[in-house]
Structures are given as C-alpha cells and as structure tokens.
Computed example of a mutant assay.
Amino acid sequence: MPERAALVTGGSSGIGFDIARALGEDGYALTISARKPDKLEEAARTLRDAGLEVHAVAANMAEEEDIKRVAREHRERYGRLDVLVNNAGVGIAGPIEQTDTKRLDIQLDVNLRAVYLMTRECIPLLKQAGAEHRRAHIINTASIAGKIPQPGLAAYSAAKAGVVALTQATIRELSNEGVRATALCPGFVATPMTEWIKEHVPESEMIQTSDIVAAVRFLLSCSPNCIVPEIQFVRPGDMP
C-alpha cells in the first residue's frame, strides 16, 4: 500500500493531467480516468515515463457503472484514497431555447451528477484517510460560471453552481471526519477545452494550469484546522 494515493477524473489532458502530474511528483500513487482510452493511455505513459505510479481507467462519467468501476479499481489497486479530484467536465454552448434535452442531460450528468456519484463511492476510503491524518481532501473543479452564470452557458453554469453547493454540503457532512472539500472556480484556463474562445481571448491572457496546480498544492499543505470552501480564479478586468 502506498503512503498516499489520489484519484483524478478528466486526467488525460488540461487541468486534470497537470494536477495528476503534480500529485505524482509530490509522492501520490495515481489513478487517472478519462473517456477516450487512447488519449488516456498516452497521458498515463507520459506520467510513467516521468517515474510516477499510475493506474489508468477509461470511463464515461455519464455512466454510473463506469464511475463505480473507477472507484473500485482504485481501491483494489491501492487500498487507500487521500485526495479525490473530480475534474471531468463538458461544456456545450447555446441559448436555452435551442438546447435539446440530450445536450442538457450530458452536461448535468458529467458536470454535477458524476461529482456526486464519485464522491459517494469514495467516501469510505476518504474517511479512513481522514481518521489517519485528518488531511483527506475532495477537490471539485467547478467554474467561475457557477458563481457568475453566463448567457449561452445556462446548463453549464447551473451544473457548476450545483458543484459549488455540493462542495459546501460535503464539508458540512465530512469535515468532522477529517475530510475537507474545495470547489475550484476558474475563468478561462489555457487548455484544449477553451479552444473555442481563443480567437477572442488569447491563450497568453488566460489563467494557466500552473495557477490551478499551485492552488491544489496550497490546499493540501493547509493544516487540518483550515478549510477552504472555494477558490475563484479571475483574469484582470473580469471581476463583476
């Protein structure tokens, strides 16, 4: 059994990949999950080539059985869980009146329902870690859209607002068990997911994944007496 272990969904690229790499560098054995097997295995190979311990599990976060399988494989592989990073997400832009139910459902399922289900499946292991060192942590990638809802992103904004609320409820349920939770609420981050906006917001002017990684490392360095419910990341001039 490793001394520390972490599970990162949406771990094949962008924010999730960089968080996973940082956790691996900091001594965590890793499970990473993403929907596309080829892309996930490429990410895992990159991490393994850097000397990190990585288990990759391809899964669709819209499917409950896939979520259960990821949690189960992590438990069977490592036997412990100190950090859960619910990072998988999807955004589909469009006005409410033109959004069909399928596009609504996939955003609610991946961005909110999956966070709830993965958290539920991982709570027993997180409680065990919390009883051991009182530093178990759930990190949920929300969005600044969950704090400042955006036109054209109504479903995404609503789901991410739900993640913020879920995070706060989780704190109230689990903090006495040594399990903390934080919602990360970034604006545009320079990742493949924001390719659609780069004509209007240059990548060089976006929040960087290194900013998110620095925040995660800060959270994990806090004493057991310190809970940070959320962190907002905004660009200069973007404050409401």
Rank of each mutant, 00 (worst) to 15 (best):
Ser204Val: 12
Ser143Gln: 07
Lys160Val: 10
Gln232Tyr: 11
Pro149Ile: 10
Ile227Asp: 07
Ala154His: 04
Glu230Val: 03
Pro151His: 05
Ala145Gly: 06
Ile15Thr: 04
Ala20Ile: 14
Ile96Gly: 03
Ala43Arg: 11
Thr170Val: 08
Ser221Ala: 14
Ala22Gly: 08
Val83Lys: 12
Val228Asp: 03
Glu230Cys: 02
Ala71Thr: 09
Leu153Arg: 02
Val8Lys: 04
Ala161Asp: 00
Gln98Leu: 13
Asp66Asn: 14
Arg134Glu: 12
Ala183Val: 04
Leu84Ser: 00
Glu41Ile: 08
Ala58Cys: 08
Glu42Tyr: 14
Phe188Asp: 09
Ile92Leu: 12
Glu63Gln: 11
Ala34Asn: 10
Val85Ala: 08
Tyr28Lys: 06
Pro37Lys: 13
Val8Pro: 06
Val57Gly: 12
Leu153Lys: 00
Ala214Asp: 12
Glu195Ile: 11
Ile67Asn: 10
Gly10Trp: 10
Gln107Thr: 08
Gln107Pro: 02
Gly152Cys: 10
Leu81Phe: 08
Leu81Pro: 14
Ala129Ile: 14
Val90Trp: 05
Ala136Ser: 12
Thr194Leu: 02
Cys226Tyr: 14
Pro224Ser: 14
Val216Trp: 11
Asp82Val: 01
Ala165Arg: 10
Pro224Glu: 14
Asn87Asp: 00
Asn140Phe: 02
Asn60Thr: 07
Val110Thr: 12
Asp105Leu: 15
Val115Asp: 13
Ser221Pro: 07
Val85Ser: 04
Val115Phe: 08
Cys222Gly: 08
Val189Gly: 00
Glu121Pro: 10
Pro192Gly: 04
Glu230Asp: 06
Ala71Arg: 09
Asp109Arg: 14
